[in-house]
Nucleic acid binder design. Structure first.
Length: 628
DNA sequence: CACCCGGAAGCCAC
DNA sequence: AGTGGCTTCCGGGT
């Protein structure tokens, strides 16, 4: 019996034909067959809605894109079929969409610096000179008319923008990609790839023969950068269901659909740039709901539709590629290794992109690019809360058990770990020799530390919190809030010098920071209200810098001899109350005297303090108690 | 000019 | 919805 004949049922017509001649339906049949044959679960057949010719053009990446967990198998099988059937008119592969000289193929490229390319797949993509040449994402079955239509739109857009249409790349097969090299990336690009700079990059589309690039500066705390290579408009690019679209940001909060690039259909200005520089030159009207002063580049929906700070130079389509970068690493020369190591493994896989069109021909779609790496926030987890980690799905697929986020430098690991609070962050920086050039102990005994490079520290903090526009000024504001909380105080007269008023344990045990402390505080609140009879109110910030009430009695022998002990009893904070450690044990006279030294605090601390809604609660009360 | 201060309002995660 | 911990400005001081 002729198996080949018997197998050619209506649902297996593809078997007798060269893949390039498959119809759309036969492609579908092949996919279904593969699903069954290879037990592939995650193949969405509709995502391969194309004919055989288009299918054969797809590269492995495109397969992986469409079927993240099965793309390899499909691709390999197709290659087998192709090699079995031999080449079929390979010389004219552009029948589908590449023949029009007036409308050359458009490719989407992911750019990643060579140093970041490490996956086996990507290594294959390195050119002989070491430059990374990543293939186009996919090419779908454009009908010529539609393709021309899109090209016209593109050309119009480019004309309007004075941008050149990407020239047809290479006509030999139509699917070879123009090499994108590191130099093509705008903005500061290091050997580790484009890095976030504290100053958003100016993002002006460049005129290039083969691609244009738009870098999008940080928008709020979501996306740092994306590049655009307006080479290609893959039409079929909806995301695999297993991945969320960039519509949701790394931490799950919503962003403007595709970073404000579309979705609403509102027309965009011809050119929008997102750099602060541009912003400053073209100040936008402040919306009533808009924080008047947020210069941060914002991309969340709630951050004002009209204020979408994703800037698109084309009213037609864009194909941005997001480069989410890890937060903690790339702290500078000292710890850039963390980023590098991280990126090395995520490399090209750690991006996504999407296709948008404002004029309505295309529905806004998002598709994670090859690897579908997405930025995810681990904020829900206690660890690495503020680290964005990129998931290398390629690696996941190959070795699911591996931590594909890649190793981080020890410093980053430690500092990133459960380090969401500024004081903790600072303590951890201080604990790292790595950061000594930036911040170090001035007097460790007294817990006096000095910031040597405030910009760097602010940058680190910004990275930690994923706030791209962090400055020392802002960070210091946060530090100043600690004054009231009795965590930190300024060393008077010494620039950039602060002092921790409590040790880490005490701070951490503070009711506001620990569950235990909170419970304790609640207990006290319930049981001890009546004890608060006219306590001598002294704010922590009235304490002189010269006073050391930072140590708990258990560790501070110098305090033992005091005639009186004082129980810091904040309603809301701290160590003292929580642990009954009475961190501050100061005679009231001393308190009073030093209070008078605190020029500003006395004058300001008791004023209305409307800004801090709980300032009153944060006041530290020192209650005089006789020692027994 | 650099650093510092605290008010005010808002954001965001929990 | 409330809260904590900022972040982002700001006007002002040293």
């Amino acid at each position: 019996m002729d198996l080949s004949l018997s197998s050619v049922h209506t649902d297996q017509l593809w078997k007798g034909k060269h893949p390039q001649t498959w119809t759309k339906g036969e492609v579908k049949q092949w996919l279904v067959w593969c699903k069954v044959e290879f037990s592939l679960d995650n193949v969405e057949v509709e995502r391969f809605s194309m004919n055989g010719k288009a299918l054969c053009i797809l590269q492995r990446d495109a397969f992986l894109h469409r079927a993240p967990f099965a793309g390899d198998v499909l691709y390999e099988h197709l290659q087998q079929l192709l090699s079995r059937d031999g080449p079929m008119d390979r010389s004219t592969p552009s029948k589908v969409s590449f023949t029009s000289s007036s409308a050359g193929p458009l490719y989407t490229h992911l750019y990643f610096p060579t140093s970041r390319v490490h996956s086996p797949l990507e290594e294959k993509l390195q050119g002989p000179d070491g430059r990374t040449v990543l293939p186009h994402l996919n090419l779908t079955d454009y009908s010529n008319s539609e393709y021309r239509k899109q090209m016209e739109l593109l050309q119009n857009a480019d004309t309007a923008l004075n941008l050149s249409i990407p020239e047809r790349a290479n006509s030999d097969s139509g699917n070879s990609s123009p090499g994108i090299t590191e130099e093509d990336l705008p903005g500061p690009s290091t050997k580790h790839g484009p890095i976030l700079s504290s100053t958003p990059q100016k993002c002006v589309p460049r005129t290039r023969s083969q691609e244009q690039v738009i870098a999008v500066a940080p928008k709020k705390r979501r996306y740092y950068l994306y590049d655009r290579k307006m080479d290609h408009f893959p039409r079929e690019c909806s995301p695999p269901h297993s991945y969320s679209s960039p519509d949701r940001t790394c931490d799950g909060s919503k962003s403007t659909s595709a970073l404000g690039l579309g979705g609403t259909g509102h027309s965009l200005p011809q050119q929008r740039h997102i750099s602060e520089e541009v912003q400053s030159h073209n100040p936008k009207p402040t919306l009533p709901t808009q924080r008047k002063s947020d210069s941060a580049v914002s991309c969340s929906t709630e951050a004002h539709e009209n204020d979408s700070e994703v800037f698109v130079d084309s009213p037609v389509q864009v194909t941005p590629v997001y480069h989410a970068r890890p937060v903690c690493p790339s702290l500078g020369p000292l710890d850039s290794s963390g980023y590098m190591m991280n990126s090395q493994r995520t490399g090209a896989l750690s991006s996504w992109g999407h296709v948008e069109q404002y004029s309505g021909s295309f529905l806004p779609e998002h598709y994670p690019l090859r690897g579908q790496a997405r930025v995810r926030s681990e904020s829900s987890s206690s660890e690495n809360s503020y680290f964005l980690r990129q998931v290398n799905m390629e690696s996941l697929r190959r070795s699911p058990s591996k931590d594909v986020s890649g190793p981080r430098s020890p410093a980053c690991e430690r500092i990133g770990k459960d380090c969401r609070l500024l004081w903790d962050f600072i303590i951890q920086l201080l604990a790292e020799d790595t950061y000594k050039p930036y911040i170090s102990w001035e007097d460790k005994e007294k817990r006096i530390f000095r910031i040597h490079d405030q910009q760097k520290i602010a940058q680190l903090w910004g990275q930690q919190k994923n706030r791209t526009n962090m400055t020392y000024e802002k960070m210091s504001r946060a530090l100043r809030y600690y004054y009231k909380m009795g965590i930190i105080q300024k060393e008077q007269g010494q620039k950039l010098t602060y002092r921790f008023l409590q040790d880490r344990k005490d701070i951490a045990n503070a009711p506001r920071f620990s569950k235990f402390g909170k419970k304790q505080a609640e207990k006290r609140k319930e049981s001890g209200r009546q004890d608060q009879t006219s306590p001598q109110m002294v704010t922590a910030s009235t304490l002189s810098p010269s006073l050391s009430f930072s140590q708990s009695p258990t560790t501070c022998s110098s305090m033992v001899n005091h005639t009186f002990s004082y129980c810091l009893e904040p309603k809301n904070m701290s160590s003292v109350a929580g642990s009954s450690s009475s961190s501050s044990m100061l005679p009231s006279t001393e308190v009073a005297s030093v209070a008078s030294d605190s020029r500003r605090y006395i004058g300001t601390h008791y004023q209305s303090d409307k800004g801090c809604r709980d300032a009153e609660e944060r006041r530290l009360t020192i209650k005089k108690e006789p020692t027994g």
